[in-house]
Design a protein around this nucleic acid. Structure first.
Length: 657
RNA sequence: GCACCCGUAGCUCAAUUGGAUAGAGCAUCGGACUACGAAUCCGAAGGUUAGAGGUUCGACUCCUCUCGGGUGUACCA
């Protein structure tokens, strides 16, 4: 049972009796932040009092009279301006916990109105190695998939991979001109990824040399002039004008500094090629590589037989290597329909937009203009090529036709907000105005210097290496700790498994525990710490609970037959029991705004409550057998809740560590 | 220029979407292993929620302005 939902439903009845239009105020029943205000509190009397023109305390009093809560709560108390404080009664807590023992889903109630939700997450470009930037979408998306499913929704995951874009032009060009045949025969994906990186670097090299560098140099000259000009300006008498002037100067100086940094960055990239004899020779040889790559891409799209066959040859290997990472991350998808799947529908999309008068010609491109947004939503380029905007529209059309979802949810980083704003607005104009379109955005992963997490050479940190390092560090910690014991617990195989679960878990949990909208700082030391809200701590908590059963030779199946012996006496038992009963509430909070950090916070709370219980209430050495059984049942529920919660987050537990 | 996001304890982050005295972990200081896992636990200290106004019973949360930071912004995805 979802206790909060039940309380709200009781309040809704009382509220509508009081005033037919007051049902909405039932949402103002919330868990209390402070235990001294009870377990739950209703804050509806204040706004309702205002609406009805009565003193809030009086409203609260009448509500309490109308409420029928005797089976759940002690008599409610009215406090302060009109808060109604609720405390669950002991019998109710005990009966709910007893029911939970026999319930496989730990009392998580399915939502009353299940929805069909398409969940779009991960979406890497194939043929480019996955990097740190793919973690959040993948991990958050997979966790949301599990939580929404656990709540009874029909969830369809779809990995919208980039398998049709310029990067294929790059590897096709690379394969035709620069391939290392033996290396390709031996490890095709590694060779393709080398080719991708090299071609990309050469394209960028020429682009910087011919376009970017001159442009940035010009900007620096302009900015320097601007600064000089502002410096020379005569002293202003008027304080207001002087302040404005100083601000302008400050801004101009900042801009100059920023532009200089950009220049340095570009020069470093040029130097990386110039200083390498092999690369600089290639750069000289492939002067037109930029346009050549675009031509290869265009040829692929136009159905060129050779490029098409290369694409078909490359793709399976790329997908297989991508799947290998997903396997390590324990992430799956119901569908993997990439850009290539939609390519023959794109012309139809633009035609349809034309016919409905939504697309207009602007500077030779077909665009949809959205009211309030300056930038156009370009669906077809001057040269006739389509863009990701077009693909995304075709994708919406396909998903709606195929699955008739209530909502399509995109787990994509915040830099694409404008794109999604335009996409959703266009889709609504196009007729898809009955489904929820949501951009679940998230912040950037930063290095410990507070800047986007990059390698020293400035490239994104590879995902594979990231996982390897986390596992390696976890294994070292696990081993060091086990070695420090009088008698080590773990075999080397166990250590290896624990290292993997703790390492991968650490990366996922760190990501999920942060509010997704903010950037977060990636730190191995913090995510692998045993104190605080980390996967390692949660896994340790689980192992610690489980060790009690081993120590006491407890048969869990038999224990669960004795659910009726579960009792609540000590405050620590009560606090733990109440927390255990709030799992469904935590999951609904996650689903409510697609924030997995509510679940990590909940699990950490359960673990903390368990610690207090563990300190204050002897289990195996309880005063009598009944109490021992009762407390073992609480331990079992705690272990199951932690394991289930972590499982929903995609994290595995270990029995010993 | 315009648009969006952010600013919370020394550091890294929360705050159930407008609720009561803003919470955790690290770091600092002080306690607890011959009772179940001390990789742990308990306690102390640490805050004008960037600043100024406003809205109201009540504001970290909503509105306005200022300061500081980030991101995006016409044919890449």
């Amino acid at each position: 049972m979802n206790i909060l939902a039940e309380l709200r439903s009781r309040f809704r009845k009382a509220l509508t009796t009081l005033d037919p239009s007051a049902a909405e105020f039932a949402e103002m029943v919330l868990p209390s932040q402070d235990a001294k205000f009870g377990d739950y509190q209703a804050n509806c009397a204040m706004p309702l009092g205002k609406r009805l023109g009565n003193p809030p305390r009086e409203i609260a009093k009448r509500l309490v009279e109308l409420l029928n809560l005797g089976d759940l709560c002690d008599p409610p108390e009215i406090a302060g301006p009109g808060f109604i404080n609720l405390r669950l009664n002991n019998d109710f807590l005990v009966s709910q916990l007893q029911a939970m023992v026999a319930n496989d889903s730990l009392g998580v109630a399915p939502v009353s109105e299940p929805k069909t939700i398409v969940l779009d997450y991960s979406a890497p470009n194939v043929a480019k190695p996955m990097h740190v930037g793919h973690i959040r979408s993948t991990v958050i998306g997979a966790a949301l998939y599990r939580v929404l499913t656990a709540l009874g929704h029909r969830v369809i995951s779809d990995n919208h991979i980039g398998d049709w874009g310029t990067q294929f032009g790059m590897i096709i060009y690379g394969y035709k001109h620069l391939v290392d045949e033996p290396a390709f025969a031996k490890e095709p994906v590694a060779e393709l990824s080398r080719l991708y990186r090299m071609v990309n670097q050469l394209v960028e090299y020429h682009d910087i040399k011919e376009n970017k560098l001159p442009a940035v140099e010009k900007r620096i000259i302009d900015a320097a002039h601007q600064v000089e000009h502002l410096h020379d300006a005569t002293e202003l008498e008027d304080p207001k004008a002087r302040k404005a002037h100083n601000r302008q100067l400050q801004q101009a100086e900042n801009q100059l500094a920023q532009t200089r940094e950009m220049l340095d960055d570009l020069r470093r990239k040029l130097a990386a090629v110039d200083d390498d004899a092999h690369l600089s020779a290639l750069a000289a040889e492939h002067v037109d590589i930029g346009t050549a790559v675009l031509a290869e891409t265009a040829a692929l799209h136009a159905g060129d037989a050779e490029n098409r066959s290369l694409w078909e040859q490359f793709l399976p290997a790329c997908l297989a290597s991508m799947d290998a990472i997903y396997q390590r991350l324990n992430v799956t998808f119901d569908n993997t329909l990439g850009e290539s799947f939609y390519h023959d529908r794109l012309a139809g999309v633009v035609d349809d937009l034309d016919q409905r008068g939504l697309a207009t010609d602007s500077e030779g491109a077909r665009c949809v203009f959205i009211e309030g947004i300056d930038a156009p939503f370009i669906v077809q380029k001057q040269d006739g090529a389509f863009l990701y905007a077009t693909t995304d529209l075709a994708t919406i059309q396909y998903r709606v036709n195929e699955w008739t979802p209530d909502a399509i949810v995109y787990v994509v980083d915040h830099r694409q907000s404008l794109h999604f704003e335009q996409l959703f607005a266009t889709a609504r104009l196009w007729g898809y105005d009955q489904i929820g379109l949501e951009h679940v955005s998230f912040g950037t992963v930063l290095g410990e210097d507070g800047k986007p997490y990059k390698t020293r050479s400035g490239t994104a940190v590879g995902l594979e290496g990231l996982l390897d390092e986390a596992i390696e560090r976890a294994l070292a910690i696990v081993s060091a700790n086990d070695d420090a014991r009088d008698e080590p617990l773990l075999s080397s195989e166990e250590r290896k498994q624990v290292g993997e679960r703790v390492g991968i878990g650490a990366i996922k949990y760190a990501d999920l525990a942060h509010n997704r909208t903010s950037d977060y700082v990636f730190s191995y030391d913090k995510m692998l710490a045993m104190q605080g809200n980390t996967a390692a701590y949660m896994q340790y908590s689980y192992a610690r609970v489980r060790s009690i059963f081993a120590k006491g030779n407890v048969d869990l199946d038999q224990l669960r037959q004795h659910a009726s012996q579960l009792q609540i006496n000590e405050p620590a038992e009560r606090a733990l029991g109440l927390a255990l009963l709030q799992l469904s509430e935590a999951l609904e909070r996650v689903a409510g705004d697609y924030r997995p950090n509510h679940l990590t916070a909940y699990l950490f709370d359960v673990a903390s409550k368990y610690s207090a219980f563990f300190e204050n209430c002897p289990v195996l050495k309880a005063e009598n057998d009944n109490l021992r059984t009762s407390r073992l049942l609480l331990c079992d529920l705690t272990a199951r809740t932690i394991a289930y919660g972590l499982e929903l987050l995609g994290i595995q537990v270990v029995e010993r560590m």
